[in-house]
Design a protein around this nucleic acid. Structure first.
Lengths: 225, 225
DNA sequence: CCCTGTGAAATAATTCACAGCA
DNA sequence: TGCTGTGAATTATTTCACAGGG
């Protein structure tokens, strides 16, 4: 019983990583009443080269019209389908400190497809509080909740020390996709998909480039003297 | 007046993106009293192939000992130097809602090199509050503060609607590195380095892989019947 | 014509496999 | 001998450039 016709051909990871950006830009264009774009226009709005955009989109099939461009609504719908946003993805957030609160009320979840169905935290001061209409529950209730609610994605927003245990519990509960915001990596079964987002990593990459830039600046100054 | 000897040779972006992970793992090993590791050990602790680790490290120079491995402290120090963590990077956070609070108190900043020197928000209910010993100030004070404190990195943690204006103000104030957590892209001068972290994007990538996995599962089931 | 879709070329990143040093 | 450092081979990704449809 397959619901949506799922893409058969292979889509490179690099392309998949850009699809959300394309989709967001298309939504913005649609809001502004734009109904059709060329690869040149869309690419420059996103910040990639037009050839790259065309190649990326061609992986999904032929949704453009030669001599004209792409119909905004059609393309947006198609990207949504490829990304799986026409399905429902129940999400649980574990760790309801400032970060958990921010994530649970982040407008990113307003995006079609993702629905927060459970919030967990073991702090008695937080249990019972409602965020966006969902009550915070003790973490021990994860297993029953996961099977009832068919949780597909788990978001870890705990301190570093708790991350590994939370990850294991999520996997044990059948969650196959994990988004880890904790400042620590977790090790899990190879067939579970884990993505980690880390402030420290991002800052360090920025620092590397900034350092390189200032060094280039010093060189230029030295030469011009 | 160059302080640290800066790396001359080119380091690929893909390598730079992995260095923070290597550094974190090395720190963890050091805490556990490990003083030497082979590329095999370190690679498996990080989750990459040993050949990749060796090639990455060889871009920074020769810091290993043939037949033995790498000295944990030496290697960690060298990676820190390459990433620019031996310098001081004053950071400002703009937008002190839940996300801003979480970021300002995130242990990621505890990392050597980054120091929060200013917090901004225009909400009168937040101005004056102290987070981690730094007072929240009105955003209008950014320009004077940026030059006094030599702010190098700006973190945007505002709602989507404010992101573009905040980005422009940061650039106008001389900030050359921006980390954007707002659910919207910003357009700035090409020589400014912007990295965006977006919950929605991460979820969509997870959804794509989850969908693909469940489709593969259906295929397998169908075949086995 | 104009703009998509795509082979072919160029570039980048990863993996292999082993020479060579401690 | 054991493990690093690195050329060479492989694989992935981007860019070019143009054929071909509307």
């Amino acid at each position: 019983m397959s619901a949506d016709p799922v893409l058969r051909r292979d889509v490179p990871d690099a392309t998949v990583a850009r699809l959300p950006e394309y989709l967001r830009t298309l939504s913005r264009l649609a809001e502004h009443g734009v109904s059709s774009v060329s690869s040149e226009e869309l690419a420059s709005a996103v910040g990639v080269r037009s050839a790259q955009l065309r190649k990326d989109l061609s992986r999904l099939g032929s949704y453009g019209v030669r001599g004209v461009g792409y119909e905004v609504d059609t393309l947006a719908l198609e990207i949504s389908r490829v990304l799986g946003l026409t399905r429902d993805w129940p999400v649980a957030v574990v760790g309801m400190g400032n970060l958990g609160h921010a994530l649970a009320s982040y407008s990113g979840f307003a995006t079609k497809g993702f629905r927060i169905v459970a919030l967990f935290d073991d702090d008695p001061a937080l249990v019972g509080e409602e965020v966006g209409g969902v009550a915070i529950r003790p973490f021990a209730e994860l297993p029953s909740c996961a099977s009832e609610q068919r949780i597909a994605i788990g978001v870890i927003a705990t301190p570093a020390a708790a991350a590994q245990a939370v990850g294991e519990a999520l996997v044990a509960a059948g969650v196959m996709s994990i988004l880890n915001f904790a400042p620590a990596s977790i090790a899990v079964r190879g067939d579970v998909d884990v993505r980690r987002v880390d402030l420290s990593t991002e800052l360090q990459i920025l620092a590397f480039h900034a350092q390189r830039r200032s060094y280039a600046g010093e060189l230029t100054e030295a030469v011009s003297q």
